[in-house]
Write a protein that binds this DNA or RNA. Structure first.
Lengths: 200, 200
DNA sequence: TAAATCATTTAACACTGTTAAGCAAATGTA
DNA sequence: TACATTTGCTTAACAGTGTTAAATGATTTA
């Protein structure tokens, strides 16, 4: 009876080992270098064993994406908790978003852009993908004095924010040449600009 | 003597055929589905012949990227030519940029984000990658009454513009279902916002 | 002890990019 | 015309990829 649990615990452990190995490879060599045999090597198994834990390679990336969103959400919540005014909260959160992307460059790439399936499919398979939305929109709503967080106005503002930040990150992640100073300048400029534009 | 030219012409033709076939495959099945054997099939040759014309697969993608930048530049110049006021020019150009990305979704993906090498390497190998900069900065400079087009101020503003537009495109290209209306709203909002912020 | 289940590996398939060897036709040279 | 050389192209092969099926050997069950 108890041995079942021990075995289940072991299985769970190698599942985690697979994800850890995958993330480590992604972080060290980039997501294009990730292969099942490389993962298997790292956990000292042969490749097909992975299919006992994941349906396919895509499922591993999806799981990494989930972990990424949870990690990102943790950072966002932390940044949010440090301020009371919604304007300050937004500023801190987008800065945290920015920092997360560069602290986890490859992971960020996996979260956006690598997976074949599109955003809508992603949200279906991965409720965690909506965590940023849940984190940001209350502050936007409070700032604009709008109760309905699903209204088009908030949606538009949220996408404007996200576009600026994600765009700047994308441009920088695929090859940083412009100085970090200019980037931070652009980021702060854009964010404070948007915040001011929606402050009554 | 003349036969040499005919042969050279034929070689140039199959070079173009390779690129055309590649672009067609990319447009129809996405860039992940592009394979050398598929290209070879399309031009009715076998795979190794491609290495007579391109160093490797990456070189084909690089050439497609060049074509993409030239096409984009054509659209930008056309949009620019339709207006005189720099503010109007910028608005029209970024709209043209946006339209280009969605009219050539897969090509846009190849241009940004697919290639392994980063932006700085890309500009080295591909001077055409700076065409958008050349197209936009004069209008920004005129609007801000700044002569030096390489100044940090213009650089910052250009990256702000680009981030917004590229970010919005990225988010949408990787499968957004949010209505086109909201997107255009975000785009116009952001662009006019930035333009207003730099209009004296 | 025999049967059945489980974890794991080996082998294989159909792909991928890429390189080397071979072949057959076109060309240059005597 | 006859031979040598170059050219254009293909076949074969290598190492790698994701993935599946079959085999193996240990562990649990009856």
């Amino acid at each position: 009876m108890a041995s079942k649990e021990r075995i289940a615990r072991l299985k769970e452990e190698t599942r985690i080992n697979i994800l850890d190995a995958a993330l480590q490879i992604v972080k060290q060599e980039g997501w294009q270098a990730l292969s099942l045999r490389k993962i298997a090597d790292a956990i000292e198994y042969t490749a097909p064993i992975i299919y006992e834990y994941f349906a396919n390679k895509e499922a591993i990336l999806l799981e990494l994406t989930r972990k990424g969103f949870l990690l990102l959400d943790r950072d966002l919540q932390q940044a949010k908790a440090e301020h009371r005014l919604p304007a300050k909260q937004l500023e801190a959160m987008w800065l945290a978003y920015w920092n997360f992307a560069f602290a986890n460059k490859e992971l960020y790439q996996v979260m956006f852009g690598v997976s074949t399936n599109c955003c809508c499919e992603l949200v279906n398979q991965l409720p965690e993908a909506e965590l940023p939305w849940d984190a940001f929109t209350p502050a936007i709503g409070e700032l604009m004095h709008i109760e309905d967080l699903d209204s088009d106005v908030i949606c538009t503002k949220y996408y404007t924010f996200w576009s600026v930040v994600h765009g700047l990150i994308s441009i920088n992640i695929l090859g940083r040449d412009s100085s970090d100073d200019i980037n931070r300048q652009v980021l702060r400029d854009a964010i404070t600009g948007i915040i001011r534009s929606i402050t009554p």
